[in-house]
């Protein structure tokens, strides 16, 4: 299982708790984690990634183990500290707008 912390606005719309747990297989990547998240919570489909290209929406950022993972390869394995639940994946909306 991986803990995922969601941005406030999207969890209000999707009526979710701030933190959710997603079951992942061995060798999980950011993409497979997001696949699982969207499967568990269909309201999130398209809100974090483009539904067809799976590309990150421009103002969405992924922080993993304290590092900005947003521009890393989403098909590379997640750190062990995330997979063993000692640290969460944090999804945030970037500072933008007016």
């Amino acid at each position: 299982m991986v803990e995922v912390i969601l941005p406030t606005q999207i969890r209000m719309i999707a009526q979710l708790k701030p933190k959710v747990c997603v079951k992942v297989a061995d060798g999980a990547t950011l993409n497979t984690l997001l696949d699982g998240l969207e499967a568990d919570y269909p309201a999130l489909r398209g809100a974090l990634r483009d539904p067809s290209s799976r590309r990150r929406r421009p103002f969405i950022r992924f922080f993993i183990a304290g590092e900005d993972f947003s521009n890393e390869n989403p098909d590379s394995p997640l750190p062990i500290s995330v997979v063993d639940q000692s640290e969460p994946v944090v999804i945030v909306g970037a500072i933008a707008g007016g």
Binding site: Q9, I13, R45, G46, A47, L48, I60, G93
Partner: peptide, 23 residues
């Protein structure tokens, strides 16, 4: 700009809302 498009529907004049399809 963060999360894209949602569609909301109310069946009670705007008292409560349900997020519906957005594909």
């Amino acid at each position: 700009g963060w999360f894209g498009q949602f569609i909301q529907r109310s069946d009670d004049g705007g008292e409560t809302w349900e997020s519906v399809g957005r594909d």
